[in-house]
């Protein structure tokens, strides 16, 4: 499976540098290494959820309890979580660090992923959620830290879109 192990490790190290202690995740191909790293790390609480909506609640709870968290999801998972993003995170000013694998965008061969790819950024913009694209390995640490910093300062969700160039080695 040509998911980049090296870049997954960079992302995981960056999350650790952000003091993330709880990661909620629903498996998706591009996230396999990240989820395994979280599972193998005794300092990390990995919550394997049944649907991405739960991740928004878990991160909201973690924030109110004073613990940094992150949500790992595919962009179709972001689509599934829009109601709680609106009616919990935005309504109650909850910071969220959402790492979203950006399926269905440039280079996508699977037709079934493409509609999610075409709608992800317009919907994030409609929700006024700031977007960082992560395509360059050298940007990973800085951009994840800056995304978390903004989320915590603005008490607002932020989206980090994990690009094919970063995650997939063809």
């Amino acid at each position: 499976m040509p998911v980049s192990l090296a870049n997954s490790q960079r992302i995981y190290d960056a999350l650790k540098a952000c003091d993330v202690k709880i990661i909620s995740a629903l498996p998706e191909t591009w996230l396999v290494h990240l989820i395994r790293m979280a599972d193998d790390d005794p300092e990390m609480t990995l919550v394997r959820i049944a649907k991405e909506e739960e991740a928004i609640g878990i991160s909201a709870g973690a924030h109110l309890a004073g613990v940094q968290s992150a949500c790992l999801m595919q962009n179709h998972g972001f689509l599934a979580a829009i109601n709680p993003i609106v009616s919990l995170a935005l309504l109650y000013k909850i910071p969220l660090l959402m790492l979203i694998s950006y399926r269905g965008h440039m280079g996508e061969k699977d037709p079934w992923q493409t509609m999610g790819g075409l709608t992800t950024e317009p919907l994030l913009r409609a929700l006024n959620i700031p977007i960082w694209h992560l395509a360059n390995p050298d940007d990973v640490a800085r951009r994840l830290k800056d995304a978390q910093t903004l989320a915590n300062a603005a008490l607002h969700p932020v989206a980090v879109l994990l690009a094919r160039e970063l995650m997939w080695e063809d």
């Binding site: 919550v47 909506e53 709870g61 109110l64 309504l91």
Partner: peptide, 17 residues
């Protein structure tokens, strides 16, 4: 006061934290 269904997910996040 909204986000129906997520009180338990919030409680789980708090309980773990």
């Amino acid at each position: 006061e909204h986000a129906m269904g997520l009180a338990s997910s919030m409680g789980l996040g708090i309980a773990l934290a």
